[in-house]
Lab assay of single mutants.
Amino acid sequence: NRLGIIYEIQGMKAVVLTSEGEFLIIRRRKDMKVGQQVSFENEDIYNV
């Protein structure tokens, strides 16, 4: 599992900021809110 803070939500995608200072786009889940810490898997990351 990886951890990140939700920075922005766009439709079915969420932008998270990881503890390494990396911004990633992941698959959104219904319970996500901006500012929330979430765990996610590598499979949830969109390749940009």
Rank of each mutant, 00 (worst) to 15 (best):
L3I: 14
I25Q: 07
I5G: 01
Q10V: 11
G11F: 11
L24M: 08
K30A: 15
N42A: 06
V48H: 11
L3H: 11
D31C: 14
G21M: 05
Q37E: 14
I26N: 00
S19M: 12
A14H: 01
L3G: 09
M32H: 15
L24I: 12
I45F: 03
F40G: 01
D44Q: 02
G4I: 02
Q36Y: 10
A14N: 01
S19T: 13
I25Y: 06
R29K: 14
D31F: 14
V48L: 04
I9R: 00
V34I: 10
Y46V: 13
L17G: 04
I9H: 01
D31M: 08
I6G: 00
E22R: 05
M12W: 12
S39L: 08
R2S: 07
L24G: 01
V38K: 01
M12I: 08
R27S: 11
L17H: 07
K33P: 01
D31P: 09
V48R: 05
M32S: 05
S19C: 12
I25F: 08
V48N: 13
M12F: 13
K13F: 13
G4H: 02
K13Q: 09
S19P: 09
A14Y: 11
A14Q: 01
R2I: 13
G4V: 02
I9K: 01
I45Q: 04
N42L: 09
S39Q: 10
R29V: 11
E22T: 09
F40M: 08
R28V: 15
D44I: 03
K30G: 15
E43R: 02
T18F: 03
S39D: 10
I5S: 03
K33V: 06
I25H: 06
G21F: 04
Q36F: 09
F40Y: 06
E22D: 11
V16E: 00
V16M: 03
Q10R: 11
E41Y: 06
V15K: 14
Q36K: 10
G4E: 01
L17W: 12
V15R: 12
M32C: 04
Y46Q: 13
V48Q: 14
E41D: 09
E22P: 02
R2Q: 07
D31Q: 13
E41I: 08
N47G: 13
N1I: 15
M32F: 10
N47D: 13
R2Y: 13
R28N: 15
G11H: 10
E43P: 02
R29L: 12
G35H: 07
K13P: 00
Q37I: 11
G4T: 01
S19H: 09
T18Q: 02
L24Y: 08
E41V: 06
K13C: 15
K33C: 09
I9C: 06
M32I: 04
I5A: 04
R27W: 14
G4P: 01
T18G: 03
S39M: 09
Y7F: 08
K13N: 08
I5Q: 05
M12D: 15
S19A: 10
E8A: 12
S39P: 04
E20Y: 06
I45Y: 04
E22M: 09
Y46C: 15
I45R: 02
G35N: 04
Y46F: 13
I45A: 07
T18N: 03
E41F: 07
N42W: 12
E22V: 10
Y46G: 13
T18S: 07
A14V: 08
F40I: 06
M12K: 10
L17N: 04
R27M: 15
E20T: 11
Q36M: 14
R28F: 15
Q37R: 10
F23K: 10
T18K: 01
I26K: 00
G11P: 10
I9L: 07
V15W: 12
F23W: 15
L17I: 12
G4N: 02
F40R: 01
D44F: 05
R27V: 15
M32T: 06
V15G: 05
V34A: 06
E41S: 11
I9P: 00
E20M: 05
I5F: 11
G4R: 01
K30L: 15
N42H: 11
D44C: 09
I9N: 01
V16G: 01
G11D: 13
K13H: 13
I5Y: 06
G11E: 14
M12Y: 14
V15S: 10
I5L: 11
R2E: 03
M12H: 15
V34Q: 07
G21A: 03
S19F: 11
E41L: 12
E41C: 10
I5M: 07
N47W: 12
R27A: 12
Y46S: 12
N42V: 10
F40N: 01
F40W: 12
S19E: 10
L24F: 09
Y46R: 08
R27N: 14
V48M: 09
L17R: 11
I26S: 00
G35W: 03
K30Y: 07
G4K: 00
E8Q: 09
Y46W: 08
I6M: 01
N42Q: 08
K33N: 07
A14D: 00
Q36D: 05
S19V: 05
E20V: 05
I5T: 07
T18D: 05
G11R: 08
E43N: 05
A14F: 08
Q10Y: 12
N1P: 13
G35A: 04
A14E: 00
G4A: 05
A14W: 05
Y7N: 08
L3F: 11
Q10M: 14
F40V: 03
I9Y: 03
V34T: 05
V38R: 02
F23L: 13
E20A: 09
R28W: 15
F40C: 02
V16H: 00
Y46E: 07
Q10K: 10
V48P: 15
N47E: 14
Q37K: 10
I9W: 03
K30H: 15
E41G: 09
V48G: 11
I26R: 00
I26C: 02
Q37G: 07
I25T: 09
I5P: 00
S39C: 12
I45K: 02
L17C: 05
V16D: 00
D31E: 14
F23P: 02
Q10H: 15
R27P: 07
D44E: 07
N47Y: 05
G21C: 12
D31G: 14
N1T: 14
Q36E: 09
K13A: 05
G4D: 02
R29S: 09
Y46P: 07
V16T: 02
R2W: 08
E8Y: 14
K33R: 07
N47C: 15
V38G: 01
E43W: 02
G35R: 03
F23S: 06
M12E: 15
Q10S: 15
M12G: 14
E41R: 11
E41K: 12
Y7P: 00
N1H: 12
L3W: 12
R2F: 09
R29I: 09
L17K: 08
G21S: 04
N42F: 12
K13L: 07
E41P: 08
Y7A: 10
F23D: 02
Q36T: 06
L3M: 13
M32L: 08
